[in-house]
């Protein structure tokens, strides 16, 4: 006798519907591999290229609270928008993001990053200048490297001053794939 799937699903939905979760997450398919999607009450708080929830769950629990549960509904809207994005039907994401647990400097960098338009490139130095810290290109690079919400917060659009791709937490192949999808010339 095993737990019926409907009963498992019903509990996961009820937990989210009653507002009892610090973080709801699910795993979604995408052309660049499976993605772990997570949202707090405030908004999307994590997109991970490593779909194995092992490490991600611990980190989410530390940052947002231990009531972390796989529950699809709270990330459904994000999943649909990502599908549209990968199909080329969407250029901008319209979801709330939760960066509230991040250091102030990183929040500032990510806010500026969100303004880099679809298909265009920015440089680390350029972003540093735009937040009024022209000499902080390296720190900006560090903040982007730890971007918890890639794709939606488009750190793939940021390259080195010579136009080289430099790096990407999800691997350079994914960065290249996202830029090609957006028709950016690298």
């Amino acid at each position: 006798m095993t737990l019926p799937i409907e009963l498992d699903d019903r509990f996961r939905s009820a937990a989210a519907a009653e507002g009892l979760l610090d973080v709801a997450y699910d795993v979604a398919d995408s052309p660049i591999g499976p993605l772990l999607l997570a949202a707090s009450e405030r908004g999307v708080c994590r997109i991970s290229f490593n779909p194995e929830p092992e490490a991600a769950l611990e980190a989410l629990a530390r940052a947002h609270g231990v009531r972390v549960l796989r529950s699809p509904r709270p990330v459904d809207e994000l999943r649909h928008q990502l599908d549209d994005y990968f199909e080329g039907r969407r250029r901008d994401f319209d979801v709330a993001v939760d960066t509230s647990v991040l250091p102030a400097f990183q929040q500032l960098v990510l806010e500026e990053l969100a303004r880099v338009p679809y298909g265009e490139l920015a440089t680390y130095g350029g972003l540093a200048a735009r937040i009024g810290r022209p000499r902080a290109a390296r720190a900006v690079g560090g903040a982007l490297n730890r971007n918890p919400i890639p794709i939606v917060l488009p750190c793939h659009r940021v390259v080195g001053s010579t136009g080289s791709l430099v790096g990407y937490a999800g691997g350079l192949e994914r960065k290249r794939a996202l830029l090609e999808l957006e028709g950016a010339t690298v």
């Binding site: 095993t2 737990l3 979760l21 231990v66």
Partner: peptide
Amino acid sequence: TAAPPFERFYEATREEIYRYLV
């Protein structure tokens, strides 16, 4: 010990608790 993410606790206990309640 600190509590693990709820998902871990739930996965570890749900089958046994369901059978117990039945």
